[in-house]
Nucleic acid binder design. Sequence first.
DNA 1: GCAAAAATGGACCCGCAAGTCCAGTCGATG
DNA 2: CATCGACTGGACTTGCGGGTCCATTTTTGC
Lengths: 198, 198
Amino acid sequence: MTRTLTPKGEQTRRRIVSGAAAELRERGVDQVRLEDVMARTGTSKSQLFHYFPDGKEGLLLAVVQQEADQVLADQEPYLSNLTSWEVWDRWRDLIVDRYVAQGDQCPLRGLLGDTGRRAPAARAVLTDMMDRWQAAVAAGIRHMQASHEISGNVDAARAAGGLIAGIQGGVLLLGNTGRTEYLESALDLGIDGLKRAT
Amino acid sequence: MTRTLTPKGEQTRRRIVSGAAAELRERGVDQVRLEDVMARTGTSKSQLFHYFPDGKEGLLLAVVQQEADQVLADQEPYLSNLTSWEVWDRWRDLIVDRYVAQGDQCPLRGLLGDTGRRAPAARAVLTDMMDRWQAAVAAGIRHMQASHEISGNVDAARAAGGLIAGIQGGVLLLGNTGRTEYLESALDLGIDGLKRAT
DNA sequence: GCAAAAATGGACCCGCAAGTCCAGTCGATG
DNA sequence: CATCGACTGGACTTGCGGGTCCATTTTTGC
């Protein structure tokens, strides 16, 4: 992939990616111009195309890859240790806090809209992230089932999917309406439902 | 608003709006070109600007207004009569069927993404729709509470918001991954939770 | 220290799509 | 049947923004 990159080149490349990520957060996917990235990172157009021969799409992909990992990492250490209701509640609060603080600055949201139809590669990265996310939550549910705190009748993977859908929708509506209740309530409804599952 | 429109003009205007709506479904908000609408509706650019002096944005707004109402209308007669668990279940199935059939052709999804940041008017129409949607679901919850089939402890408006968030997220993920489980499970998790609420 | 390759600057090209303009036609109304 | 305003056609303008090119400077490896 990267054929020959000197230390200096690698540094510049990183600067471009993180600058593009910031620009993406502020302006949204289909509003970012290469010129914006250039201005913010102090680079020229030829540098952009030097490091990302596929142009905007390639740059976008690099950013998405980085940000997708970040989304999951931001949920630690709770996400990987959903082994008691206390942790579940902390996880819930962490998500709410994170997205409320972030507001409508989600760098990935644009890709989930129909902008992503044009960027299949970026979309694939996101689907992969969703899978990992769902798997982590499902593992938590199974753990709670092992300790008989969630009914064994619950389909862990499916319930995890429902919970994640609620989070996605909640974040989406948070960005559009500015109201946090959607996200909060979706999480509460889902988690409370699991607690009381028969 | 409409100053003088002869019957013929009104017909043309309608043809443009519905053609634009179809184009919107197929290509997505930020991919629709005026030229596409012209081709589909057999109109010229001057006609577009004759009926929509504000250009693309105005046209878009007209379409969104129409489609937003449609979203709610499509959920009838159940949405307005969530007075028994049987109706709730039918409503649930209707939503799943509708969006599965629709696939990723949701004309509004694009607006909910960050494309909507540029179109505040269109976004306002959507927020209004969400409010009406939430109010209808909340009314259903309150009705079930009156007949003691949902606990009085449940905050109806809040729970309705959570449910809608789940639907939104489910539809979003359906469009991206092609999997229906997110939407189905979000609805099940939410409705089952209401059934068992203490 | 010297080729070769990588890194950089910036001018240029090009296509696309929104929006403008004006000339011309149709249709309602007196 | 005359006239005015709504309606239509289509050429033209304009600006934006992604992508290309080449000359120049800097770094690397021998």
